[in-house]
Amino acid sequence: MKSIAVFCGSSAGNDKVIFQDSYNLGKILAKRNIKLVYGGSKLGLMGQVAKGALDNGGEVTGVIPGFLKTKEVVHPNLPELITTKDMHERKLKMHDLSEGFIALPGGFGTFEELFEIITWAQLGLHHNPIGLLNSNAYYDELIAMLKTMVRKGLLKKANFDLLIIAEGAEELLDKMANFQPLPVPKWINKEQT
């Protein structure tokens, strides 16, 4: 993988481990020569992952909708910043620029991005690995809920397995490098979405 989109919180939260893990992910991406594609903010966990990459000589592209592009939000030191008209275009651009996806801890926006990109994979619209960095057990309850969905027959195990889960960035990236996508469904194509 040459580029990974990272979805994460624009808030810093109150967990120092998660805050440090966000910086560490950016640092590891830079050390592995993997371009970081992210939401373009200087704030919160988003700012930390960008800082980790930039501090270690990494390549970083921010993608931000115009309405969020203010001096208080946008990262001022990005080598590349793409401005989109809205949130939907932002996600499409991040998808187009990336060969993999990682969700760090975050709120509703992070969940929405994660579930949309994994739904696209389930439908065969992309075949890129999707990682969930379960920093400091942040996603334990979500993982348990997904397993309940499988048990109740509302989520196929093969689709659950599209989500690559690890507690550390190095382990997650190693697992993502070995990802094998599902066969493409024959009943849907990109124009139908």
Rank of each mutant, 00 (worst) to 15 (best):
K51R: 12
D174W: 05
G13L: 06
F108R: 03
E141D: 14
K2Q: 07
G52A: 09
S22G: 13
E89I: 08
F7Y: 15
G106Q: 06
L173W: 07
N56I: 08
A53Y: 06
F7G: 00
F111V: 15
V63N: 00
E191C: 09
N189V: 10
H95R: 07
M1L: 14
I64D: 00
I4K: 00
L172Y: 14
E99K: 04
N14D: 12
K152F: 08
Q48T: 11
Q20I: 06
K190R: 06
E170S: 11
G58H: 11
H126P: 09
Y139C: 07
K69H: 15
F160D: 02
H75N: 15
G47V: 06
P183K: 07
G57K: 03
L114Y: 01
K35P: 00
T83A: 01
L45D: 02
N134Q: 05
L25M: 15
V60K: 05
G168V: 09
V74T: 14
G44N: 02
V150L: 10
L81K: 02
K51V: 05
A137H: 14
Q20S: 09
M1R: 13
L146Y: 13
K51M: 15
L172N: 02
L172M: 11
V73F: 07
R151P: 05
K156F: 13
N14H: 09
E141Y: 05
M87D: 11
S10W: 12
H88I: 02
K152T: 11
M46F: 09
K69F: 04
I4R: 00
G100P: 00
E80G: 10
M87Y: 14
E116M: 06
V49Q: 01
L114V: 12
K71F: 10
D174H: 12
S135I: 00
L142N: 09
K186D: 15
A12N: 13
P185D: 03
V60M: 04
V17P: 04
L43R: 11
Q122C: 13
L114F: 15
T84M: 05
